[in-house]
Design a protein around this nucleic acid. Sequence first.
DNA 1: GCTACTTAACCGTCCAGCCGGTACAGTAAC
DNA 2: GTTACTGTACCGGCTGGACGGTTAAGTAGC
Lengths: 163, 163
Amino acid sequence: MRRDELLDAAECLLEDQGSQGLTLAAVAERAGVSKGGLLYHFSGKEALIKAMIERLIGEFDAMIEAQHESTYTRAYLKATFEAIETGRLRRWAVVTGAAGDPALLAPLREAMARWHRHGLDDEPHPQTSQIVRLACEGVWEVATHCPAIVDYGAVRQGLLALL
Amino acid sequence: MRRDELLDAAECLLEDQGSQGLTLAAVAERAGVSKGGLLYHFSGKEALIKAMIERLIGEFDAMIEAQHESTYTRAYLKATFEAIETGRLRRWAVVTGAAGDPALLAPLREAMARWHRHGLDDEPHPQTSQIVRLACEGVWEVATHCPAIVDYGAVRQGLLALL
DNA sequence: GCTACTTAACCGTCCAGCCGGTACAGTAAC
DNA sequence: GTTACTGTACCGGCTGGACGGTTAAGTAGC
């Protein structure tokens, strides 16, 4: 689908130029398409960003699901490190790009609430599980901004040991 | 100093309108100053954002220092929750605003590296300390986007218990 | 000839930065 | 004590350029 290629181009752009660089013309050019062509698929810039966010959330939820681990926390943990190690994390630069309009972050807030609460009380050690999930969030954040300062393998082992 | 009032105005604006709302005219108006007056203090928009970031980093470093705890991790932990509970965290919406130009995030990356590495190997349990710091980062992130989904008191107790 | 898709040219808006101007507080020479 | 000069703080109109979005005119496949 051409739509996905356009979203890919937009993600690349965001990653190495920041939200400043995310203009319709730039996205179109990187995707090898004209501006009109881009607007054929997305009604406007807002729709483009919204689509990026929804794709990312869907993708990560699918990764969690695909782990079929014994607990949601374990699945979330594995998905997090898998995303980081397979470079999929780069895509999340979108978040920074969407920050221009707080309303666009609403779906993300909703997803975050799900990731941090889903099935928490049904797990063996809710408190520990919550901390592990928060630590994952932290790893994610650090990996986004300065990937080099953490030994991911060691941290993952440490977190698994806690559970 | 008038300079600080201008930075305050910019922070407020970023918080409730996103980076989109951060225009020189808007900042000036909120601070009760003309655009020319604003530009007298900051050579341009970039300088304004840079100043905001530097002020925030300095502020947080000062908070860590002020804890004079036995370990950096404990101080970092206490500073994090203090920042959240005193509402100081709201200021960090700047980060989203600065994302327009990745270069502006460089000082933040540097600070983050410091917060996650400083004195880590000299602490009793480096591995656990690192996880606690990462969890703090996660708490921070969650508090920024959806403050309501975490019981901060409980999480802080849990983290202190780990150390 | 209809649908899916693409193109280039164009418009209106918005904004950052510039610049000429104002007010005022020193201060120093006479 | 008044005049002339200087530096600091602040003002607001202007402009050039960039960007989002529109439109009218294609093109290719079926």
